[in-house]
Amino acid sequence: MFLARLMEESPECHAPSDEFNKTGIVICESDKVHKMVAMSFSKPGLHAVQHIVLCLPFSLRDHTVYLSRKPCSTCMTFLIQGSVSAVYYWPIAPEKKGDDSVVKEDSQQADCMLLGSPISSSVLLPTTSFETVKMIAKKTRCKGQPNSNFKSFSYQTEDVEKYHSLFNIGKDMCVKRMENALRCYDFLLECSQLEKKEPKENVHRHALQLCYFLAARSGKLW
């Protein structure tokens, strides 16, 4: 789920159109190992789900999908037709943009589609212990400050306040878990951050962050 969020923050990720938010996506096998098989993001004219379906040389059948936002009804159609096993997403502003009524209608349409399918779908917030994150950070030169204010929390908790009813989750518990998840996420990003010099280096910085997250996930971090 952290990787899905990171993919959305890629400098190469863009909203498919003015009607949708940009989105990151990670595909995993649905076994105990949970091997990652693909990562991608939305691009102009292509939603994240559409982009990954077009690029993958294999079917999404029985795979688990992680998204940085709740997928729109169109993307949910792709996922259902692809026979994925499960869909998980962050509880922030959904992929569909617009006024409240438009967003709510699209979200309900996506939920209705799921009712007639065997696919499970829900919010997922990483419950990683911050102590575990600090242990990972000890294996590298970490510039992160565990007690500093983290950048992601304020605007994403505003989304929780606004959209929690769309996700059928308790607001207070969600905010608490969001705080822990984003604290861990931002601290890990600080561990892998390059010195910012020129805008063109954003792609390289993101590549470093991605490699760091992949290593941290597998436990092979030197």
Rank of each mutant, 00 (worst) to 15 (best):
S107G: 00
A137N: 04
V53Q: 11
L125N: 05
S107E: 00
G82Y: 06
T74P: 00
V65A: 07
I52P: 03
V53S: 04
P71R: 07
R61I: 11
S120Y: 12
S121C: 15
L115K: 13
L54I: 01
D99W: 09
T74W: 07
S117N: 05
S59M: 10
D99N: 15
W90E: 13
R141M: 08
L125C: 06
G144W: 10
L60S: 08
P118G: 11
S121I: 06
P94N: 03
R61L: 08
S117T: 06
M135T: 10
L124S: 14
I92Q: 01
T132A: 15
I92E: 01
E131Y: 07
L54M: 13
P94E: 02
R61K: 15
G144N: 09
V133N: 03
S117Q: 04
M113S: 05
I80G: 04
Y89T: 02
K97L: 15
F130Y: 12
S85Y: 13
S120N: 12
F58D: 07
Q145E: 15
Y88V: 05
R61W: 03
K104V: 01
V133F: 04
I119N: 08
V84S: 08
P57D: 13
S59E: 14
V53Y: 03
T132P: 00
V84P: 06
D100H: 06
I119F: 09
T140P: 00
T64M: 11
P126Y: 13
Y66P: 05
S59R: 14
S101H: 05
T77Q: 14
Q50G: 11
G144Q: 09
F58E: 14
M135N: 12
H63P: 02
L124D: 09
V65H: 07
Q81I: 01
I119S: 07
A86H: 12
Y66M: 12
S129K: 14
T132F: 14
I92K: 01
V123P: 07
G98A: 09
R141F: 11
V65R: 08
F78Q: 13
T64C: 13
C55S: 15
Y89K: 03
D62F: 09
C142S: 14
V103R: 01
V103A: 01
P57S: 11
D111F: 00
V102S: 05
P91W: 09
T127D: 15
A86M: 10
H63Y: 12
A110N: 01
M113C: 01
T132K: 14
C112W: 00
S73P: 05
G116S: 11
T74L: 12
D100E: 11
M113R: 10
L56A: 13
V84F: 07
V102Y: 01
P94I: 04
L79K: 08
Y89Q: 04
M76I: 12
P126H: 14
K143T: 11
A137F: 02
S68T: 09
P118A: 10
A93W: 05
A86I: 02
C72S: 14
V133L: 03
S107D: 00
E95K: 02
T127Q: 15
I92G: 06
V65E: 06
Y89F: 15
Q108K: 04
K139H: 12
T127S: 15
G98L: 08
F78P: 02
V84E: 07
Y66K: 06
S83P: 00
I80E: 05
